[in-house]
């Protein structure tokens, strides 16, 4: 029974994506051209990769606010280590990915082992990383992305962008992890109720730790790839990804309280946000009007998805158990 509303929420996210895409093509012709769709998928890939780890963390009932500066630190460290050359990348990339995963594990340890609220733990780590990279670089990082990274971010194999392929592989792996593995099922259990999960023998600490580790890993990966797109690492490049990563997960149908959602939905969420970001400049609005439209669209998207699915769930619930109390709104 739980599967139906979940799939419905994901379907609605895709429906929203298609409607937005068509609307946008009405406003600005050429939006549906191949080259533009390609740009769209490249931009969505960055959000999608950051949101991958965020999806796991949110399904597990947490939230990762350290994403922006994990991403930013990874980008800056990569450019500093590589100095524009491909050679050093063979040790720089694995090293930075491990470092990102380690920061994630640190978040997870504070939250799962010591009971620090996720918002505070990851917020503090974010702030500390921000300071650390400022101290390390003296405020002015000056390095360009090496060729290999640029190829990964903007290159193409045939008509398909390389990063879209990278994203596709990651998406398959994430979906497999969530749907087909013990870890995935344990993650949903922890997100639904850590207490129940604990008493059912789910390794809550390990599961939480893994989710945050994954989030640190994907944020670091996205940071390095993003450098290839912007050609340079700069301070503050990760900031937009805090709310886009969370919003992508939420638009994709996951509950921010944990226990539901799927990466398949997050992919649609990443596209919705990217299309929106492309649509708004086409409308030639001021920055203020942009924010208003942005808020209105988020509100509309989530309320369409959410009300439809919770009504349906309530109806099914009432049909299956006529004597039970109708599930109350929250």
């Amino acid at each position: 029974m739980a599967a139906l509303p979940r799939h419905r929420a994901i379907l609605l996210a895709y429906l929203g994506m298609i409607v937005l895409l068509l609307l946008t093509s009405l406003v600005s012709p050429g939006f549906l051209s191949l080259s533009h769709l390609r740009t769209l998928s490249v931009l969505a890939a960055f959000i999608g990769i950051v949101a991958l780890g965020q999806t796991f963390v949110i399904i597990g009932g947490g939230i990762d606010l350290s994403v922006p500066w994990v991403l930013n630190c990874a980008a800056i460290l990569m450019t500093l280590m590589a100095k524009g050359q491909n050679g050093p990348l063979y040790y720089a990339i694995p090293l930075i990915l491990v470092a990102g995963a380690f920061i994630g594990a640190l978040n997870g340890a504070g939250i799962a082992l010591f009971g620090v609220p996720a918002i505070i733990m990851t917020l503090a780590v974010n702030v500390i990383l921000q300071g650390a990279i400022l101290v390390y670089t003296g405020g002015t990082p000056q390095a360009t992305a090496p060729g290999l990274i640029q190829y990964l971010a903007v290159g193409r194999i045939g008509p398909i962008p390389v990063i879209a392929i990278v994203w596709g592989v990651l998406a398959l792996a994430a979906s497999f992890l969530l749907s087909k593995t013990v870890f995935g099922r344990q993650l949903y259990a922890v997100g639904t109720s850590p207490t129940v999960a604990e008493f059912s023998g789910v390794p809550v600490v390990r599961t939480t730790l893994l989710a945050y580790t994954l989030s640190g890993f994907t944020a670091a990966l996205a940071g390095m790839l993003l450098t290839g797109y912007t050609a340079q690492a700069y301070l503050g490049m990760g900031d937009p990804y805090l709310f886009t990563s969370i919003a992508a997960v939420a638009i994709g149908g996951a509950s921010i309280l944990g226990g539901s959602g799927h990466y398949v939905g997050t992919i649609a969420g990443a596209f919705v946000l990217t299309i929106l970001a492309g649509l708004l400049p086409a409308l030639d609005l001021s920055n203020g009007a942009l924010l208003i439209v942005y808020g209105a669209v988020i509100l509309t998207t989530v309320s369409l998805a959410s009300e439809a699915f919770s009504d349906l769930a309530a109806t099914i619930h009432a049909m299956l158990r006529p004597n039970s109390i109708r599930s109350e709104p929250s």
Binding site: I246, I292, V293, Y294
Partner: peptide, 22 residues
Amino acid sequence: LRLQPFLVTLATWSILSGAALL
């Protein structure tokens, strides 16, 4: 609408900031 507080207030935050900028 039975929405999550996080999302609703995120959206109204955006709308209010937009109004302030206008």
